[in-house]
Design a binder for these strands. Structure first.
Length: 573
DNA sequence: TGACACCTCA
């Protein structure tokens, strides 16, 4: 064999190998990891061994599959075979350790490579910063980032900035993220649509949708073209605050700009309309997407089913399943869970149980949420014994109960006059997460107070405080109600003030509970103060409170403050 | 895409 032939052969095998790695990268299926491992073994045995580039590529594929321990093992094997690591391999290695919650080890590697004379590059630092973010150590991530800038270690790129911006958004420091975005604008590494979208999304989650809209137009003015991700974030943000009409306008606006909304964009709208109870509008959105040649998927239809169920229109929900079948869209466990939930809420427990069985016969495996839905349904329909049976069965089938399961269980038991059993079950729990769950405490306090055991309810409240747990709105509301039932209105009011001081704002339920009690006691002045306060905080009365107020008109006279309050309430409604 | 606990019982 002459030299040219040898080169050609080498070129051919390299090309062939690259093709196989590429195929693997785009493959999907259960054997993907095994195939990758097999290829790796094959590569190790080759003589001469393939280049480090190919090993790097293959290991990257494995990292993309989130098989971090495997990737690390392979890197170790390469080392044993005498294939020297390069900075790429080292960076991959650091990344894997970070993903496995071992940032500290990542930093150890950094020290090692320094010693070995491999200079770390920007990717090394970005990986470590990302590692800190993943470990919720965002503050340290920012510090490291600042250090890079300050000491001019290397020039951060969009990826580095993106990691830090995402980290800041993740911990709710959106304004800091925004600052960093401005900093980028002023420097040479300009932000692109990805960094803008992250901040837009974060602003939406902070309820600052208008600021998000502003940033969106600012981005456009800067000449950065919005993509579908930015639009979806904005549309989702608007929908979350009931601004579906604006969201729909944005959607149409994006089409005018030549960016086609996707199935998921429309699905955000469909879901939002459904949650609002406007299934008609949701159906219109479905029609609009179909007109554009987009096919609603299982998520879209599941949202619709939920919408119909929420309105109690079970038959319509069932029809959606048929519509899906006609289009060969296979309902999944979530779709069925939503429908089962619909049945349960309508107390059609037999239908729920039937469907629950039917899907299992089809081979679908109910998950925790499906079981939770069924449990709640059984309790609601007055079948506590069957519920307990199912609770045992779910554990036998390997579905571990979660915190929701226990809340449903304890609540169901209390409602079915099994308070003592509920407490006994609670006492038998061994997980810290469950023992320290204020939700479970609230349920038990509520349960005990409703069966007249006020002193036990109070004891439980003291217990959770002694444990150092923070009561939430519901806990406080339940306790306020307990105090009122014992005629301790003054103490109830003290607790209302105390929750405020503890940074737990009362909600409309809290106010309605306490106002009603004051009205019952004809303590109108107190009631007035609280009503003014609740109105100023943007809450309104429920129908019962409002009716009670109207009944006071004859006894309070024409120009009483109560009249003014009633007028205000009418204006709100 | 799906699940939980606070009010309204005359």
């Amino acid at each position: 064999m002459n030299c040219t032939t040898l080169l050609r052969l080498r070129y051919y095998t390299t090309y062939h190998l690259n093709q196989r790695i590429l195929q693997l990268k785009n493959a999907s299926g259960p054997t993907k990891v095994d195939d990758a491992l097999q290829l790796f073994d094959e590569m190790l045995q080759r003589q001469p061994p393939p280049s480090i580039f190919q090993f790097t590529k293959l290991i990257s594929v494995i990292v993309k599959m989130k098989q971090y321990s495997t990737a690390l093992m392979l890197i170790k094997q390469m080392k044993l075979m005498g294939i020297p690591a390069n900075i790429y391999i080292i960076n991959i290695s650091i990344n894997c350790h970070c993903r496995l919650n071992q940032v500290a080890y990542g930093f150890t590697l950094l020290a090692t490579i320094f010693k070995q004379g491999h200079p770390p590059n920007l990717a090394t630092y970005s990986t470590l910063i990302h590692g800190l973010v993943l470990a919720d150590r965002v503050f340290e991530a920012v510090e490291l980032f600042k250090k890079l800038l300050r000491e001019k270690v290397c020039e951060p790129d969009q990826i580095t900035f993106g990691i830090v911006i995402n980290g800041l958004c993740k911990v709710g420091h959106t304004s800091k993220a925004l600052e960093l975005l401005r900093y980028m604008e002023s420097g040479s590494c300009k932000p692109d649509v990805v960094q803008y979208s992250a901040v837009i999304d974060s602003l939406c989650k902070d309820r600052m949708v208008d600021n998000a809209l502003e940033l969106f137009s600012h981005m456009t003015e800067k000449g950065v073209l919005a993509n579908i991700i930015a639009y979806n974030a904005l549309i989702q943000g608007l929908c979350n605050f009931g601004r579906e009409t604006e969201a729909a306008k944005i959607l149409m606006g994006m089409e005018e700009k030549g960016i086609s909304p996707g199935v998921d964009t429309f699905t955000i709208l469909v879901d939002s309309f459904c949650k609002k109870g406007c299934v008609k509008d949701a159906e219109l959105a479905v029609q609009a997407m179909v007109r554009r040649g987009l096919h609603p998927n299982v998520i879209t239809y599941s949202a619709l089913i939920d919408g119909y169920c929420l309105r109690g229109e079970i038959e319509e929900a069932e029809n959606v399943i048929d519509r899906m079948m006609e289009q060969d869209i296979v309902p999944n466990i979530i779709t069925y869970s939503i429908l089962i939930n619909g049945y349960c809420k309508k107390k059609q427990i037999d239908k729920a149980r039937h469907l629950f069985q039917e899907i299992q016969d089809k081979g679908l495996i109910p998950d925790v949420i499906t079981y939770n839905i069924m449990l709640q349904g059984l309790f609601l329909s007055g079948h506590p014994a069957t519920a307990i049976e199912l609770f045992n069965k779910m554990q036998e089938t390997g579905q571990a109960p979660n915190i929701y399961t226990y809340r449903i269980l304890l609540h169901g038991m209390c409602k079915n006059s099994q308070c003592y059993d509920a407490l006994a079950l609670f006492r038998s729990l061994e997980s810290k997460e469950l023992m320290e769950d204020v939700g479970l405490y609230s349920i038990l306090i509520d349960g005990y107070s409703k069966c007249g055991k006020h002193d036990l309810a109070m004891d439980l409240f003291d217990e959770l405080c002694v444990k150092g747990l923070k009561p939430n709105v519901r806990t406080y509301t339940v306790m306020i109600s307990v105090l009122c039932q014992q005629g301790l209105l003054g103490k109830a009011k003290d607790l209302l003030r105390k929750m405020d001081e503890n940074g737990c704002l009362p909600d409309s339920v809290t106010y309605n509970v306490i106002v009603q009690e004051f009205l019952k006691e004809k303590a109108f002045q107190e009631a007035e103060i609280l009503l003014e306060e609740m109105i100023s905080r943007g809450f309104s009365t429920d129908s019962t409170t409002f009716e009670m107020l109207l009944n006071q008109i004859p006894s309070t006279g024409q120009d009483s403050p109560m009249q003014t309050i009633i007028q205000k309430l009418i204006n709100i409604k």
